[in-house]
């Protein structure tokens, strides 16, 4: 079931469009914002609310990289694997984080604290290497900086 607040937010967002169905991507983002990810049940609920077929909504949900169709950790680390970050050594930083957390790209730590994912160029190339944790951007990364950042997110 969608919560009243989710429904409200979806309806508010839908004011920008002439048809209710156009809010589909926003609806997925709203549900994910409240629940951390988008489950099969949520896909059904959104489909019902927007008067769309379940498959239609799922086809949209699975298209976009930032809609999670399986549970993620409390914090999502997105490591930029773009060209500039490659030149500036993201691969070593990835190995460092990966060893520290014991997970590879796509994995979640057993305590549910972190999920580690790659992300394409973050548009921060002059301050590479870069990554995001949840919605925050961090630049000019070093191993020391990563140590300090990981402590911040419990």
């Amino acid at each position: 079931m969608l919560s009243e607040q989710e429904k409200q937010e979806i309806l508010e967002e839908s004011k920008a469009y002439p048809h209710l169905q156009a809010v589909c991507v926003d609806a997925l983002k709203i549900v994910q914002h409240h629940r951390g990810w988008v489950s099969d049940d949520s896909i059904q609920d959104i489909a019902g609310f927007l008067k769309m077929s379940v498959h239609e909504v799922d086809s949209v949900a699975t298209f976009y990289s930032r809609i999670y169709r399986q549970p993620v950790g409390r914090h999502v680390i997105l490591i930029c694997d773009g060209m500039s970050c490659m030149i500036m050594g993201y691969e070593n930083l990835y190995e460092y984080i990966s060893q520290k957390l014991g997970i590879r790209f796509g994995g979640t730590t057993t305590d549910g604290r972190f999920t580690l994912l790659p992300i394409s160029c973050l548009g921060d190339c002059h301050m590479a290497p870069s990554m995001m944790i949840n919605e925050e951007l961090f630049s000019l990364l070093t191993e020391e900086k990563i140590d300090e950042l990981l402590k911040r997110y419990q």
Binding site: V25, K29, Y64, S65, I67, I119
Partner: peptide
């Protein structure tokens, strides 16, 4: 919701239509 192809103007339009 994140995909490079959204920069292509007709793909962008489809995306904006949900």
């Amino acid at each position: 919701a994140g995909r490079y192809i959204c920069g292509e103007e007709t793909a962008l339009i489809n995306s904006l239509e949900g």
